[in-house]
């Protein structure tokens, strides 16, 4: 497989970096080459946050994703900013509760997921990011459900292990959305 370049973007606090970390750990679980690069600095204090994840069978060159194969957008400014950068044939996943998609591109596939609404309806506060990941693995096949579950078990610290079942539930909600 060629390198899959994934860009995740949203407000600080929406779990953009955490979702990226789960994807990175999926790569680790599947024995792939991978990189994870966050935006850092003032973004982390409430502005926009974004994170580049590269997954490949070959060593990763530049870890900075400029033209993603997969874009995961969690707020309007991120969607508007990055939608034009997605590679032709790429896939876009966005939180349709928060974003009004205005996109004239016909060379990419766009998947709206009402992830904030779904999270609220199912008492999964802050689970919007993981719901979107569920949709991503269903529509792209970049990782299996089993791999993602293993990754979550690895990423969630032992002190918060009680949150693992909620994360599993969020993935399934996303896969079935």
């Amino acid at each position: 497989m060629a390198t899959t370049e994934i860009l995740l973007a949203g407000f600080g606090g929406q779990g953009v970096l955490f979702a990226g970390k789960i994807l990175a750990y999926c790569g680790l679980m599947d024995n792939k080459e991978l990189s994870w690069l966050p935006s850092y600095g003032p973004e982390m204090r409430g502005g926009t946050a974004n994170c580049s994840v590269c997954i490949s069978d070959e060593p990763i060159g530049s870890p900075l994703v400029l033209t993603p194969d997969i874009l995961i957008a969690m707020n309007q400014p991120s969607f508007d900013k990055f939608i034009g950068d997605v590679k032709p044939g790429g896939k876009v996943f966005y939180d349709s509760t928060l974003i009004e998609a205005d996109c004239s591109r016909t060379d990419i596939e766009i998947f709206p997921v009402a992830s904030s609404q779904l999270a609220d309806d199912n008492a999964l506060k802050g689970g919007s990011n993981i719901i979107l990941l569920g949709k991503v693995i269903k529509e792209t096949g970049v990782f299996s459900l089993e791999t993602m579950k293993k990754a979550i078990e690895k990423v969630v610290p032992p002190s918060k292990a009680q949150l693992i079942p909620n994360n599993f539930k969020a993935i399934e909600l996303g896969m079935n959305s």
């Binding site: 970390k21 990189s35 994870w36 850092y40």
Partner: peptide
Amino acid sequence: DGLLGQMMEP
């Protein structure tokens, strides 16, 4: 540099 310091890799 900041890129290497901030990025995660195996």
